[in-house]
Design a binder for these strands. Structure first.
Length: 196
DNA sequence: GGCCAGGACACCA
DNA sequence: TGGTGTCATGGC
């Protein structure tokens, strides 16, 4: 499939916003919200943090779940503001506990926390999202949930490789797991393995 | 008109 | 721990 160049964004502030907005939402709808946010914030951390939750709700409405997402954005950017939007300082301060710190924020679960680690804090982690679970299930790796798959898949990758890995898995998933009927026919026999 | 997207959370047993 | 309902918009 070639390089996917994930995550598509101008800067890390935009990635933070996109990571929350894309939760169970088609990217086309995320784009609408980002287009609303850009002229208002220019994707500068301080300007995003200065927005009220009500203002955020109006701007991100096209992405749905605006109550939860606006609160998540508020909480995340409050944390970031405390460290002057210095992602390196934040990572060094919390070290291995950074993931726990992110998970403690309302509206940020395992997948979003890992996406932030991978694309914002430069930590090479494996994002065990739904597409990854489907793909690895097709390859014979049965997993109960997010955490379980993450434990089973041990990847030693550089940061750039880990970022690309997740992008490839999701783009692959969009193509081949879109409909169940297609997935069933695609997964018949050993076609998946040969294509991989 | 129904289904679902690059989830998370509250509630329940 | 694990399963289910709910949150919401827009495209197909």
């Amino acid at each position: 499939m070639g390089p996917q160049g994930w995550w598509p964004a101008e800067n890390k502030i935009e990635i933070c916003l996109g990571a929350i907005l894309v939760q169970n939402t088609a990217w086309a709808n995320v784009d609408k919200s980002l287009e609303n946010l850009k002229p208002v914030t220019n994707f500068e951390g301080e300007k995003v943090a200065a927005l009220s939750q009500l203002e955020l709700i109006e701007l991100i409405r096209p992405s749905g779940f605006y109550q939860t997402k606006s609160r998540a954005i508020k909480e995340l950017f409050q944390l970031l503001a405390t460290y002057d939007f210095d992602f390196t300082k934040l990572r060094q301060t919390f070290g291995p506990d950074l993931r726990k710190k992110l998970l403690a924020l309302h509206g940020i679960g395992e997948e979003t926390a890992d996406v932030l680690l991978l694309y914002v804090f430069d930590v090479p982690v494996f994002v065990a999202d739904r597409y990854a679970q489907k793909l690895f299930a097709a390859l014979g790796v049965v997993s109960k949930n997010y955490h379980h798959l993450q434990q089973q898949v041990s990847v030693e990758l550089t940061l750039a490789q880990a970022q690309e890995f997740h992008g490839l898995i999701d783009e692959f998933g969009k193509l081949y797991f879109k409909t169940k009927s297609f997935a069933d026919s695609f997964l018949a026999g050993d076609q998946l393995e040969s294509r991989l």
